[in-house]
Design a protein around this nucleic acid. Structure first.
Length: 569
RNA sequence: GGGCCUGUAGCUCAAUUUGGUCAGAGCAGAGCGCUCAUAACGCUUUGGUUGCAGGUUCGAGUCCUGCCGGGCCUACCA
């Protein structure tokens, strides 16, 4: 039995996440967590909301609420939607937690003690009308290069040239439109990541089994230009973790907070502390401190590709720089993007299907199956309603659902709702057992390697074998002249249901549970096909489950296409 | 501009690590079969000069060069 720590990239607080966000980190992380638990491993699966930063403050202002109140409410919303999608977090925390405050300040203190923090004066744009400093991209103006009048202070989206805010012609606040801006000097802390460059580079080089997407992004940042750059880790904002050096005040840093990307990854650790504080566990350092029991933990992170630099470099720099034995990530699974019907999902533009809307129209298993079996592992993937309807109807309703339906109903009509007795396994059954044992091995290998699409394809192939078996065995024909043999065939086919349920649970947990319940057995991962497929004894009662998956009709699909064609209002 | 990823049957993808039965699967299409089942299932089958043009090699989807298309990142959004 192994111990595996799993974290999903923590979703930002400023709204309900769309399916692209979901499939890029939380859903695959959940799949892996459920699989490992099923295999009997000890898992700690953590996620949280990422609550700091300018966008959170602006979202709160737009909602007309104090930012703390806004975040608390949005945390509750995201927590509920996570439950709706059956995300099996051991704890869903908040980066604004007291635990994260203390831990973030602790790390800053350790880094300062190690000589890895330096203070620097910076020139920042201040908006008097908004009464705040503005990040570069929150300043708009005319591009000095191409004349585009909505260029941002970091880059012109029209001609893609890199900009600084002071280069913009007629700059204005993107928040209020005010042109009453001025450059102010402000003092900030910088993390001297450059000093850790070789250490980080060696560490990345040692990760030969990581996806190319992960290592190539890390190497780019390590080697581009002058190499890894030092990074500001503080901001002039109200909402955030106050800058402290451990528990001590930090002279000159009054009124400032840590940069959200400094405190957000630390929340992975603090979340374990929250997990204990919530009474769900009793020793969080056993998962995070290699000197206190975590030396045998395997730590796996899941994230979209946009998050990779912070997880391969910034956060490891924080940990390595602290000089303390915190657990470093062992494997990073990163994903490309899921697009929506010819364009990108967009939270800011309200484009696509959002988690709450998805659950309004269909049970979570439909979404889980489709999204996971099409997870953007090697390149960007695309969601279309036609593909969704076609794939879900075929895979879930026809292949899996109908298999359960046909065999349970056949049995009930011929033998009653009881596993029939009589007859013996023949070569056909033995051959299928052998085949399924092979497939089980392949499926597990893909899951172990977190090759999600391949795992989904193998699982589907396993479902198909049930229909193939019934077709070739044809118990309905045997029943007419040889009821004993028909009984043995039926008993064998019924045994496939709990076998399928166990294997399918990571993908479609609700349906898997319903399958196990219908057969009157606990949901369990099969140790081997031979044993699992003889588990249901003759005389064991069962119930014919309701239709597991209702098909998506063309009318439904068209209605949803129309409903989700525009932007969310 | 630079870097990285990507382009394989109508569609979604596999095979690229280690060049050699590697050109495959699912869906869609066609034909046949079955009737237990959510008009579901099974079997058979039609589709590809692997974006284009060169090169290396006994042999390239796989390696090299150039070109074309799609995507991402480029450090103060997170």
């Amino acid at each position: 039995m192994a111990r595996v720590l799993i974290t999903s990239a923590i979703p930002y607080i400023n709204g309900i996440k769309h399916l692209g966000n979901l499939v890029g980190s939380q859903l695959p992380a959940d799949l892996y967590a459920r699989y490992l638990r099923g295999r009997g491993h000890e898992v700690l699966f953590l996620c949280a909301t990422d609550e700091h930063g300018t966008p959170a403050e602006l979202a709160a202002a737009k909602a007309g609420k104090p930012v703390a109140e806004y975040c608390a409410r949005m945390w509750a919303v995201q927590d509920e939607l996570g439950r709706g999608f059956r995300l099996s977090f051991d704890h869903f925390g908040r980066s604004s937690s007291p635990q994260n405050h203390a831990l973030t300040q602790h790390f800053a203190g350790r880094l300062a003690d190690a000589g890895l923090i330096e203070e620097a004066w910076e020139k920042q744009i201040y908006s008097k009308a908004d009464d705040r400093f503005l990040p570069d991209r929150y300043i708009e103006g005319t591009c000095p290069n191409c004349g585009y009048d909505k260029a941002r202070g970091d880059q012109c989206e029209s001609c893609t040239i890199q900009l600084t805010p002071t280069e913009l012609i007629e700059p204005r606040s993107a928040i209020s439109g005010s042109t009453d801006l001025e450059v102010r000097e402000t003092r900030h802390l910088h993390l001297k990541q450059s000093q850790l460059r070789m250490q980080l580079s060696d560490w990345i080089d040692s990760k030969t089994d990581w996806p190319v997407l992960t290592t190539s992004i890390a190497r780019k940042w390590l080697n581009d230009g002058d190499g890894l750059q030092d990074r500001g880790i503080t901001r002039d904002l109200d909402w955030g973790i106050p800058v402290k050096r451990g528990t001590e005040d930090w002279p000159g840093m009054e009124g400032k907070v840590f940069y959200v990307w400094f405190d957000a990854p630390i929340e992975y650790i603090a979340c374990a502390h929250e997990w204990v504080a919530a009474g769900k566990g009793d020793d969080w350092k056993r998962w995070w401190r290699t000197d206190q029991g975590a030396e045998d933990v395997r730590y796996v992170q899941f994230m979209g590709k946009d998050n990779v630099p912070f997880h391969t470099l910034s956060f490891p720099a924080t940990i390595l720089g602290s000089g303390e034995p915190w657990k470093l990530v062992d494997y990073i699974k990163s994903f490309n993007y899921l697009n929506y019907d010819g364009g990108q999902f967009s939270t800011s533009q309200g484009r696509g299907v959002f988690m709450d809307q998805a659950l309004e129209i269909l049970p979570s298993d439909y979404w889980r199956w489709w999204l996971l079996s099409h997870v953007p592992e090697t390149s960007d993937a695309e969601f279309t309603w036609e593909a969704f309807q076609q794939d879900v109807n075929k895979d879930l309703a026809d292949v899996l659902g109908n298999f359960v339906s046909r065999i349970t109903k056949f049995c009930r009509s011929k033998f009653g709702a009881v596993v029939p007795e009589g007859g013996f396994h023949g070569p056909r059954e033995q051959a299928l057992i052998t085949d399924l044992q092979t497939r089980l091995g392949r499926y597990q290998a893909h899951m172990d390697a977190i090759e999600i699409r391949k795992a989904a394809a193998e699982l589907r192939a396993i479902w198909v074998t049930g229909n193939e078996y019934l077709q070739s065995a044809a118990p309905w024909a045997a029943f007419k002249h040889d009821p004993q043999t028909a009984a043995a065939m039926t008993r064998f086919a019924l045994n496939l249901i709990p076998f399928y349920a166990g294997l399918s649970a990571p993908f479609i947990p609700d349906t898997a549970q319903a399958m196990a319940d219908a057969m009157g057995v606990p949901l369990a991962w099969p140790a081997c096909a031979e044993t699992a497929l003889t588990a249901l004894p003759a005389g064991h009662g069962f119930t014919v489950p309701d239709v597991l998956f209702t098909k998506i009709s063309n009318d439904q699909r068209k209605a949803w296409q129309a409903r989700f064609a525009g932007v969310r209002t």
